[in-house]
Amino acid sequence: MEMDWLLLAEVSLAGLGTGGLYALTALAFVIIYKATRVVNLAIGEILMLGAYAFFGLAAGWALPWWVAALGALAVAGVFGAVVERTIIRPMLGESPISVFMVTVGLGSMLVGVVELIWTADPHRLPEFMPNTPILIGDAFLAPKIGYGFMVAAAVIAVFVLLFRFWRGGVALRATASDQAAAYSVGINVPGVFSLAWIVACMVAAGAGILVGSIGGISSTMGVFGLSVLVVVIVGGLDSVPGALVAGLLVGLVEALAGAYLGGEFKLLATFSLLVAVLMVHPYGLFGTREIERL
């Protein structure tokens, strides 16, 4: 069989594009895990919530897309604050498994709410991205994936800077490292918990708007979170660089498997990657060693 380099390039680009969205959602997961040590399995459903909030505001209320996007982020932020304060914080000190199960339940509830309001039928999000094709060399990249990737990359870059230089980012890293020490130097640890949930839910909602505008929305789009779970396990639950590298890697592997082996091999390839990485690096590629066993 002759190798089609152009096809390989196009498939790889599309894979990296999706990988950028994986990375963005994984970032949301990692922010929560770092600050609160909660494995948040509802991240895919929070992403869905963001997409539906955008759909409701942009299609239902016919608001301009950017107002709807800001509105969806605000909805997700409020949601994060309420969940952290009323559900997660009272469970501080409980077994990690219990908290993890609570997030599973939270995900199911979100699916239920979305189906009650918008039914289980798939919808398309209003078009808001330019639809001129992107050409990189001779390779064609679907515009939505390309612009989605650029937005994801920009948001991730901002977050990497915030983690390093903003006091809140430094406080989050300090809290992640040692809560008692963080308290003792005057860091408002409960405030960091709230902030982490608010910001992470907003990031996930932003990813949801991008994912939904590429592939449409439905009440099952939370399964996106399954691939994201693979991403964070491969990258290391508490590692931002890990989330980025593993996000791109998983996106690439899925796209290549889908193109050359067939769509049904996508998830097989993803989980094979997971097994392979865990055999070599049980804590993920970049993770630290103190990690929950689930």
């Binding site: 890293r173 300090a174 490292s177 040692d178 008692a180 020490a181 963080a182 003792s184 630290t288």
Partner: peptide, 13 residues
Amino acid sequence: ARSFQNIALFRGM
């Protein structure tokens, strides 16, 4: 300001 019996430093920094 305090220190801890079992050292509480920000490891990794």
